[in-house]
Design a protein around this nucleic acid. Sequence first.
DNA 1: AGGATCACGCACG
DNA 2: CACGTACGTGATCAAG
Length: 624
Amino acid sequence: FDQGASDDMGDDAQASPETVTVAATQYDTVLDWPTFDRWLARLQAAELVAFDTETDSLDAMQARIVGLSFSDQVGEACYIPLRHEVVDAPVQLPLDEVLARLKPWLEDASRPKLGQHIKYDTHVLANHGIAIRGYAHDTMLESYVLEAHRKHNLGDLAQRHVHRSGLSYEDVAGKGAQQIPFAQVAVDKAAQYSCEDSDLTLHVHQTLWPRLQAEPALRDIYERFELPTSRVLQRIERNGVLIDKALLQQQSHELGQRIVALEHEAHALAGQPFNLGSPKQIGEILFNQLKLPIVKKTATGAPSTNEEVLEKLAEDYPLPARILEYRGMAKLKSTYTDKLPLMINPATGRVHTNYAQAVAVTGRLSSNEPNLQNIPVRTAEGRRIREAFIAPPGHVIVSADYSQIELRIMAHISQDENLLRAFDQGLDVHRATASEIFGVSPDEVSSEQRRYAKVINFGLIYGMSAFGLASNLGIERSAAAAYIDRYFMRYPGVKRYMDETRAQAKAQGYVETVFGRRLWLPEINSPNGPSRAGAERAAINAPMQGTAADLIKLSMVAVQDALDAQGKATLMIMQVHDELVFQVPEAERDWVKTEVPRIMASVADLRVPLLAEVGEGLNWEAAH
DNA sequence: AGGATCACGCACG
DNA sequence: CACGTACGTGATCAAG
């Protein structure tokens, strides 16, 4: 979306009469103890302090402090350089002693602190043995709750909300291959950069926090969902997950052999060598050399070689099947079996993902470096990778996941009597849907009819069109439209929900989750037909996906609280949208398997029962 | 030459 | 061209 200056019309800083103008900033570089003592006294007296760490790595688990900055008043800040190693760097205060003297304040929960993306700084301090407490606010999360669809990095927030800009990281450290470690940045430049970050964080907070306070539902999402989730995520990330490196390496070896064999077969079938990893070269071979029919084209007009196309061609020709098999093997090897062993942290022997809390516009988390939310599960071949997510000796892996969470939420929101009844009675919901659509008793539903109903139920969650359903089921659009009509006749509450949600989105530009999280749809009134239609589908989906995200955030916080209250040694180690995964000492297995699903089912009282299912095993695959 | 970005494909819920 | 993500490889762009 537009990041330009013209994009910030009507935001609070322009509209507000009490916009602060920062004429001049007063930034200190702390190089001696008297100056340090003066600032420490200020921090101890301040009602709220913005705080930022400068480090030598973006990897939060490995980063070491290079310097610290604090701001207790807009326009004023200090920077404490600690490990700058540039040639003519000044003599700096000793890191260990500075941290030792700051530690009581940092760990004092009654001294409120503020940051931009505090999960990162929490890790950094933990790397130095400091357990920060009293993190009262996070500007990134404030922004995310107010405007999930926009950007949340500090530079953009400062520009948008207080019309200020500071040095960018690239300004001080360079970019690309020329980039230098922060420790090699000149101290005065680093001081300017870091002081600005703390100062701007405080300034942005002073505009965003009043806006949250003025919207009780959003303030609740921020205080009761996002802030506590941030703390739980930091612990999950730090716990990490144990990976069987040797098993993955063995799988890589086997996959490598199968890939080579498939390459030979494919080249023989093509009559020439080509790169099976290149859709362009595959297209050249299939459609120009071998004259296979073009099934469909990509967005840029090139003949598509995607899975659906190759499956179709594989009905009549041998080569597409080899390419499909190659792609499956190559995906597993390059993305998972080769990559995961490289991601093991040498200090902990475990893999520590990063959960992004302010990326997904629906309120979901995302996971990166590595992404642990897309580990294969749908094929037997892929599931072998889950066997490498293991419990250490004396422990088991326990997985607990919400059953049919989004359909349950659809029943709750729509209040459709028929759907509510199905969940109340504990029915197989796809079978119940098939029974309604096809007009047969539940016992008479064929597996084919149930499969259709399942696709329709998924489609409803995605805001389906007759076109989308038709292409998914491989039927005529008119037939798909007839199924949708039948569905809405049997579930009129769902129909009403869809219509009302679309209308609400158009009228106010956003929709809401059950808990009041606001999901903005900038394209909902676009003159561009396809993008408007896309926004309408997103509007249907967002309350369900977003409410599910809200529920599991509540669960994560409640389960962690229970573990802490009971003094359990069980570790929460992963979240996969509707699933929580734990590393559990054998002695705690029964407690976890009973209590975790109970907590997950009771975090909210909806018009449908919530159900969480639990499994255990020596690895993640076995725990399902 | 090679870093940055796009295109495509595909893993998950 | 169903909603939401992350990321791998190959192809292309275009600065100096």
